[in-house]
Design a protein around this nucleic acid. Structure first.
Lengths: 202, 202
DNA sequence: ATTATGTTTAACTATTTGGTTAAACCAGTT
DNA sequence: AACTGGTTTAACCAAATAGTTAAACATAAT
């Protein structure tokens, strides 16, 4: 009984790092071991296989995202608040962990069946997420857009720039990191404004 | 001299299929050979290495996308037309090839340096893409949004649903394919309407 | 028919990589 | 001190996989 807990955490952190940047197929157990400052055998002692380790890490990350979103919309009374809270919380989260969305989307794409178990095992309450937006959908001061479309609009505009940061950076900003950062910082309030202006009548 | 040209095409088509669905790391030369109905040695005879074959395929796909976009916005005189044309053309393209964006974004993420060469070697004229939107930016009947933000909004809303189809399908539509398809079909006109309503004053 | 050139194949090689094994190690318990 | 449990390691194994080789084959030119 020397390390245990500490080691496990170190492994998960290292695995997270490697999996997120290289994907499941591109990740190497050796690299994870190196990054965790242990050797490969110990890695397999803690998590029997690459698949098992990956599942742990992926679940971990997925839970982080879900609880993040849940918290951001928990106290939102109406659609205005919901959008503002979601975009604000999520944007800050993504600025800290910009590689997460691309990773999650790629892995779900690679193995779509996974998502069913994932939602189940994480006890995600769908209603909590789309309930507010559906209920608010028939407010008289809103344009008659399909609320699901609005939801996807907000998700798209918030998440996509991080998923496509490589292209946007290279294509629109000629590789200029600073210009891209400015753009991202400006974006948070832009989305809120843009959506508000679009959904309200008048 | 039996096959040659035909074989090369068959290889590229097979490689495209496999790379797009599995990614570079997940793709296997054997699987590509099988799908092209040849053996691995011939594969290496035509394209010396996995990397070389991948580059060819990726360039190919990238070019398709770029020319697609270029064509869609070529004859657009103002921002209204531009948005409508872009969304229409692109949506139909993506419905036919829904896996392309996720693939491209993942590979660029995996190897960001690639994009510089890619843009260079494809002779992409950036101005053509963002020129119209920048020029139209200070029309008096438009709200004073940053045109780049608008551009990214349109890109996001159009492309993201395909990148995140797995999550959207599973999460919002409980795995119901038909409901998702209906949503996608409705989406094309929704985006156009949504953006128009947002950008125009009054 | 023979030659030359490009095409196709089966069999092989070297390396990478996920995973295993058996022994050493360390701390607390008896 | 000897024992017991989990922990850690170096060395090893087997399978997968990118890439090679050398020979057979087909077609057109001489």
């Amino acid at each position: 009984m020397v390390n245990n807990e500490n080691t496990e955490i170190k492994i998960i952190e290292a695995a997270k790092e490697v999996f997120v940047h290289k994907g499941y197929d591109g990740a190497r157990m050796q690299e994870i071991a190196d990054k965790a400052e242990i050797n490969k055998a110990l890695l397999h002692y803690y998590f029997r296989s690459k698949t098992k380790l990956f599942e742990k890490v992926f679940n971990n990350i997925f839970k982080e995202i879900v609880t993040g979103v849940a918290a951001s919309i928990e106290n939102s009374k109406n659609i205005e608040e919901l959008i503002e809270n979601f975009v604000n919380v999520y944007f800050e989260e993504l600025k800290k962990k910009p590689y997460i969305p691309q990773f999650v989307l790629h892995e779900i794409n690679r193995n779509p069946e996974m998502i069913v178990d994932l939602i189940k095992s994480n006890g995600v309450d769908k209603q909590k997420f789309i309930g507010v937006i559906l209920k608010e959908g028939n407010r008289k001061d809103l344009r008659p857009f399909n609320p699901i479309q609005i939801l996807v609009n907000v998700l798209s505009m918030t998440i996509f720039p991080f998923v496509a940061s490589g292209i946007i950076k290279g294509f629109i900003f000629d590789g200029d990191e600073d210009a891209f950062d400015t753009f991202i910082n400006e974006r948070k309030s832009h989305i809120v404004e843009f959506v508000q202006v679009a959904i309200f009548k008048k």
